[in-house]
Design a protein around this nucleic acid. Structure first.
Lengths: 154, 154
DNA sequence: TTTATGTAGTTGATGTTTCATTGATTATAC
DNA sequence: GTATAATCAATGAAACATCAACTACATAAA
């Protein structure tokens, strides 16, 4: 076994359904957000992270927290700034650095968008699953993240 | 409970780690493909689906199979055609339609890329997980897909 | 201190994905 | 049989993401 040309039936089915689910679910959540708010899914991710940190964060910390490359975040902050959802601020203690800060408008849009989004996450995902499945998914995700971290360090 | 402003701790941790894992894993698999072959991850997905179907498929069927919007696929096929990985062909039985067909070059690139990719999927993901976790993930994904399908029909 | 190395963040170019619209054809309803 | 609706696919514009290069500052070593 372990034919490296393909995956086995079981492996393949699991892998494929996870990928497919992720693709569809993310698409649906993005669509749901766009229909019911001014925020895209990426906007939403940024704003949630920021408001969970008192509304301001160093850019590199935010990037690490949400798993984005710094360039992607920088560009996205640029676009969000134009729409007055966030602003940039200088950092005194490290003059290379900068903060992103949620604006009043950013908070408001997030508050309008959040209930619908989290309801959709429950309705489409969480509510479908047994407690065992939830635990399995969490453990599996964390194990994979640990594996990825090891890979990156070497 | 069921506060719709946010997710509970357990819910949130599960949801967040799954999202984060997916982001990182996909990024790493994409990087791995780009380093070791001429194919991007999306290229790879298209070519796998095509070669599993005798090398040719109607465009809308391919889109459904891999879960892409047809517009995305159309653009992607355009770019892949320029690189001679696939070609388009007319469809006689339905004159609105078209086929995508893998070229010889497309098959060759896929054969070169596949072993490294599937090895990485095993090494980074499948091999980390217990059989129970694999089953749970598969069942959960399929349940969510079913839920999504219901949502779309209504 | 000078020099080297690393880190934070931005930028521009390029590549990709989404969204809304359109043309062409096929399927359904009247 | 014609009008109506639905489907297949392509397109252009805009939003988004990636990559390589670069500035500016910080840290460590010589």
């Amino acid at each position: 076994m372990a034919n490296s040309r393909t995956l086995s039936d079981t492996e393949g089915r699991t892998w494929r359904s996870l990928q497919f689910m992720q693709l569809r679910l993310t698409a649906e959540l993005g669509r749901q957000l766009s229909e019911n708010s001014e925020l895209s899914y990426p906007d939403f991710i940024v704003l949630v992270a920021l408001t969970n940190a008192d509304g301001r964060m160093r850019i590199f910390e935010l990037a690490n927290h949400i798993g984005w490359e710094k360039s992607r975040l920088s560009h996205h902050i640029g676009r969000m700034s134009l729409r007055r959802l966030v602003t940039r601020e200088k950092c005194d203690s490290d003059r290379r650095g900068a903060f992103v800060v949620v604006t009043k408008r950013g908070r408001k849009e997030l508050e309008l968008a959040a209930p619908g989004h989290f309801d959709a996450v429950r309705r489409l995902f969480l509510d479908q699953l047994t407690p065992d499945q939830l635990v399995a998914i969490r453990d599996a995700s964390e194990a994979t993240l640990e594996r990825l971290a090891v890979t990156e360090r070497s």
